[in-house]
Design a protein around this nucleic acid. Structure first.
Lengths: 180, 180
DNA sequence: ATCGACATGTAATTTGTTACATGATTAA
DNA sequence: TTAATCATGTAACAAATTACATGTCGAT
């Protein structure tokens, strides 16, 4: 019953190691092709956190005679900590910060053309991200589903639903602002 | 042409002072009833930032013979900096971090009942936030609209559209997971 | 040989929250 | 008189990004 609070980075590390053992480098790649649009992690967080988790006994190095790579795996304690977090009821951190939205909020202080241009950029950016998620991320999530792990694809679809709603709403506003 | 990069907190301060002069305390209250779901600010950021902005000449204290309050107003340079930011094309920071989404992503590693409970909590939380936004924030934004400032309400509606899309998608998943 | 990807790490800086500390004013 | 709200600030801590520093391996 150690009850060690996990840092956000620890959670993502333990989660990805639960799929299979990986190096810090591998974890970063995995984040980039799956969770990064709702949860990121940089090398500056991953490597120190792996060392802390090793000292805490939640992960250990799998020695595979590969000199230059340090492949980590979960220990029993690490797996338990992961499952405790997933089953716990800590309030989930939810942080949505959007500078475009802030510009939109203050757009009464600029001329109509500037406001419209900002809305257009916000919409265009969402189109880009949607295309990227469908082209680069969905195939990996689909593979997981085919392998019997449906939740990564479900998480992606929740993200797509959110972005599509924003894109559609912004496109409507774009038309409204243009129509005048 | 000072070209001073504004910190995120500076942007929100300048924006709210553009509506009308306020104290640091007032700015915090304004954030709480309007932007906090896409952009927050704590006293620990607001007060030091006001001092920096004053030294930089973007805001100044309006002396109103009120001993205990320091009411700030925009200077001409401050208003110019605000308009330059609003009209500029810096890439907008967009940060969406959602621990619930991370739990969802890793839910293949827990039993079906635990996964369902997490989805239910995510959906319930969105219902709560939607109710709060409609009850506590929308009336203020509506007042702005009535006063000829339509953008705060538009920004709120974009947020509502995003949360509704998530809520609906989560409710669908809840039914799917229950149905088995 | 040299370039790009692989790989690990640290340091500096930025950004933000929370807790602490203090005190004035107002309504019950 | 006392509790809540108003009001300003600092300090300690937490989290995250970016830049820096170093080196290996494989393909051309």
């Amino acid at each position: 019953m150690s009850r060690v609070a996990l840092t956000p980075t620890a959670k993502i590390i333990l989660g990805f190691l639960r799929f299979r053992p990986r190096s810090g480098y591998d974890i970063k790649q995995a984040v980039e092709i799956s969770t990064r649009f709702f949860w990121g992690a940089s090398y500056g967080q991953i490597y120190p956190e792996l060392q802390r988790l090793e000292r805490a006994g939640l992960v250990e190095v799998e020695q595979v005679a590969e000199r230059r790579r340090k492949v980590y795996r979960l220990t029993a304690a690490g797996e338990q900590a992961l499952v405790e977090w997933l089953g716990g009821d800590e309030g989930d951190l939810f942080q949505y910060r959007d500078e475009g939205m802030l510009r939109l909020f203050f757009s009464d202080f600029v001329d109509a053309a500037t406001a419209l241009e900002n809305v257009r950029r916000m919409r265009a950016w969402r189109d880009e991200v949607l295309a990227f998620l469908r082209a680069e991320i969905e195939p990996h999530a689909q593979e997981d589903t085919d392998a019997g792990l449906p939740f990564p694809l479900r998480a992606l679809h929740l993200g797509l639903a959110m972005l599509e709603a924003q894109r559609d709403w912004l496109a409507d506003l774009e038309r409204e602002l243009t129509a005048r």
